[in-house]
C-alpha cells in the first residue's frame, strides 16, 4: 500500500496532488424509510473496518515520512438506495463475487437476520418505503513533498 503511494508520488507532477477517497472504519448503517421517517436503523455487518484502518495508517505514514503533505480533508455521506433488503441482498451476492476475501460466516448470519427484519419493516410499510445503506466517506487531498 505504501509502495503504491510512493509510485503515485513519482507519477504526479510536482504541483499535482493526490485525492484519496475511502470509507471510515465505522460500520455502515442500513435504514428503512417511509414517508421521510426512519422505521428501522441498524449497523450493517461488515468485515472491512480493518482494511479501512490500514488505509488510514498508510496515509498517516506517507505524511510522517514527508512524502506527501495533507492539504485538505473532509467527510461525506454516501447513500445507496434500494427498494428492499432482498434486492440489496441479491446485489450483495453479485458484489461478493468480486471480493477477494470470503465473507465471515458470523457476518453472513447477522446480515441475514438484519435483512429479514428490514424486509418485514418494508412489507409492513408498503411500496413507498425505501432501504438506504448509509456509509460515511473520508476524502483527503495530499500534495507531494519535494
Amino acid at each position: 500500500m505504501v509502495h503504491a503511494l510512493e509510485e503515485i508520488h513519482r507519477l504526479l507532477k510536482p504541483e499535482g496532488y493526490l485525492v484519496d477517497l475511502h470509507p471510515f472504519p465505522e460500520a455502515p448503517i442500513l435504514e428503512v424509510y417511509h414517508e421521510g421517517k426512519a422505521l428501522l436503523s441498524d449497523e450493517f455487518p461488515s468485515q472491512s473496518a480493518e482494511a479501512y484502518r490500514q488505509a488510514d495508517w498508510a496515509i498517516d505514514l506517507i505524511v510522517q515520512r514527508h512524502l506527501f503533505a495533507v492539504e485538505g480533508s473532509g467527510a461525506f455521506d454516501f447513500l445507496t438506495h434500494a427498494p428492499s433488503a432482498s434486492a440489496l441482498d441479491a446485489y450483495w451476492a453479485i458484489a461478493s463475487a468480486f471480493d477477494q476475501e470470503p465473507t465471515d460466516k458470523d457476518i453472513q448470519a447477522r446480515r441475514a437476520d438484519l435483512f429479514t427484519r428490514v424486509d418485514k419493516a418494508v412489507n409492513a410499510a408498503g411500496i413507498s418505503s425505501e432501504v438506504v445503506l448509509h456509509e460515511r466517506g473520508r476524502i483527503t487531498v495530499l500534495r507531494p513533498s519535494a
Partner: peptide, 10 residues
C-alpha cells in the same frame, strides 16, 4: 496533475 484513489486504498 491529479491522482484519485477511488475507494481503492484498502
Amino acid at each position: 496533475d491529479v491522482v484519485i484513489l477511488s475507494w481503492s486504498l484498502c
